[in-house]
């Protein structure tokens, strides 16, 4: 391992980290704008041109707010909670292939922090961990409403992880690999997995909504029943971290969905483009395509939020265990049978 490798990876990590933070920051702005446009309003338009500095103003406000740590809370865990939420949200981006390798001065630089051969499992591990931030925050607050919310969030996430994992198994039967890099490369051009796994994709996206605690599955946050949610006792930038982590989660799950089902950085006609624009610009166009897909998914997340009313808690559990899980299992079986038949003949 030479020093240039370390520097190269460090720069890549810094860039990806920066990009995910900026995207999460502007997702808050985009959310408000999309909400406004869907409701025939204007949205924030006072801070800077078209309200572009609104996220900065919000961030500044969050930093200036008074920091309150409840007396009877578990102080150490209370402080760890938001950091953990943020950490688990951020580390998911490490295995996502952001583009095909670029060649600079004879050196091949892969646009992926690490291509571990169990990338999909890693993503699942991180997603499962993300419930800890919520759980610890809710528990450490020493507030029954926060605890109720945290329990709700935990049971929701665990329920939907099952269906999500099962929907992924059908995908893995098609791709034959757990490495995200190889999954993306298997979807060259137009051969996106969503065409082979439409049901799997629908199951996955529903579970992704539940995993990111987005509407219509935003049960952990509820003013009528829980006063606020698992972050009722939080204030200042600790609260900001929780809200921010939700947007990073949204970005990461959009990236995962684009990678697994929508071809990642692949797009029709990419061979021609790669041949004609050179080894640096070509892969970067692929990266831009990936980001376009991610933004489309983020927009979809927001669009759904401002369309669909939330589920009741029993309906949520019913959907997760009695509808999505049997469907996912059926999907696995049907996919297996079809693959066996195709290989036979």
């Amino acid at each position: 391992m030479d020093i240039t490798f370390v520097i190269e990876k460090f720069i890549l990590v810094a860039i990806i980290f920066g990009i995910s933070l900026v995207i999460a920051m502007y997702s808050t702005y985009a959310e408000r704008k999309v909400a406004a446009f869907l409701q025939d309003r204007l949205g924030p338009d006072r801070a800077g041109p078209a309200g572009m500095f609104q996220p900065l103003a919000d961030g500044l406000k969050m930093f200036m707010k008074e920091e309150i740590i409840p007396t009877h809370s578990n102080k150490w865990l209370f402080m760890v909670g938001p950091g953990l939420a943020m950490l688990t949200a951020c580390i998911g981006t490490a295995v996502i292939p952001w583009g095909s390798a670029i060649t600079v001065g004879g050196r091949v630089i892969p646009l992926q922090v690490t291509d571990i051969n169990v990338g999909v499992l890693y993503i699942f591990g991180v997603v499962s961990l993300s419930v800890y931030g919520v759980m610890i925050g809710g528990w450490a607050s020493n507030n029954k409403y926060s605890l109720l919310s945290a329990i709700r969030a935990a049971s929701q996430n665990i329920s939907y992880e099952v269906a999500m994992g099962l929907s992924i198994i059908a995908l893995l039967l098609v791709t034959n690999t757990l490495s995200l890099k190889e999954i993306v490369e298997g979807q060259h051009g137009w051969h996106w997995n969503v065409l082979y796994q439409p049901l799997g994709f629908i199951l996955f996206i529903v579970c992704a909504f539940a995993e990111t605690n987005r509407a219509p599955f935003d049960l952990p946050e509820c003013e009528t029943e829980l006063i606020g949610g698992y972050h009722t006792e939080y204030s200042s930038m600790k609260l900001g971290f929780y809200l921010f982590a939700e947007y990073i989660n949204m970005f990461v799950s959009s990236a995962v969905m684009s990678t697994l089902y929508f071809g990642g950085y692949n797009y029709p006609g990419m061979d021609w483009v790669l041949l004609h624009v050179g080894p640096v610009i070509g892969p970067l166009i692929g990266t831009a395509v990936l980001f376009a897909k991610i933004f489309a998914f983020i927009f979809f997340f927001m669009w759904v939020r401002w369309t669909i009313p939330r589920f009741r808690y029993d309906q949520l559990m019913h959907l997760g265990w009695k509808v999505l899980m049997p469907l996912a299992i059926a999907n696995v079986i049907i996919t297996g049978i079809v693959i066996a038949i195709v290989e036979k003949f």
Binding site: V34, F37, Q39, D40, W303, V304
Partner: peptide, 14 residues
């Protein structure tokens, strides 16, 4: 979703 997206392109009342 089709109803909400149709509002996306309508003139805002603000």
């Amino acid at each position: 979703l089709s109803i909400t997206i149709s509002h996306f392109f309508k003139k805002e009342a603000t």
